[in-house]
Amino acid sequence: MNIVVCVKQVPEVSDADLEINRKGSDIDREDLEFEINEWDNYAVEEAVRLKEAHGGHVTVITLGDEDCEDVLRQSLAMGADEAILIDEDGFEMSDAAGIAKGLHGVVKDLSFDILLTGVQSSDNSWGQVGLILAELLGLPYASLVVGIEMGDGKATVFRELESDTQEKVELPLPAAMTVQTGINTPRYVSILGIKKVRKIKIKETDADELNLSEDEIGAEGSCVTSRKLVIPSIGGAAEMLTGSLDDICNKAAQIIQDKGGLV
């Protein structure tokens, strides 16, 4: 059972004060911390579990700059066997299809049974790359996967639908799946664990080597011709409770009581 997983490095934004760069095209990334995309962490864990249960080999791939080696090292420490980095040179400003073409360039030459990506990236939230990749490869696929059961030459896959409902579908192998959070509990990776995989060599490739021309990827190949970022105004809706901690809690307690909380 060979498994390929696409992983992406993303900025951690939930606790950060975000600012937009002068051109309005991106956020300022300088002071941000980076991590593996949450969905991809679950995908790597699922791949390693499938390998542990059925044997085989796990390859992780990322498209990004040199620093993105970190997410590959983390995936190796979780139990992946091999890692490939596609240099992002030429891919800047790509849309989801451009990224998918880069990944396709590598994946098409690998032999695998299952191709996993996350459902979406937390920064772009396109929810597109995994499925475009599946289509480029001509594979059967399922998105929003919360469970995988291996059968003979096929997989039974549980897809998450709305309102606590799931759908069970069958896919012949090889197949592509996009992994939803909660499918498993990803293992913790220690610094020591990452040190242990230090010696594994990461394979590198780039757009040239993959024979991707400028008009297929990057800004030129993108279906998005302009992107302007704005910080939405949050205000207006909520009345903010201010003052000392005690004041705030008195006000909050009053509101809770007025609206029907226990007295």
Partner: peptide
């Protein structure tokens, strides 16, 4: 659409089609 966990809005134009 929203990017970066809903903290930023993105205004996009798509290429003529």
């Amino acid at each position: 659409r929203q990017v970066f966990g809903g903290k930023i809005n993105a205004e996009l134009s798509l290429k003529p089609s």
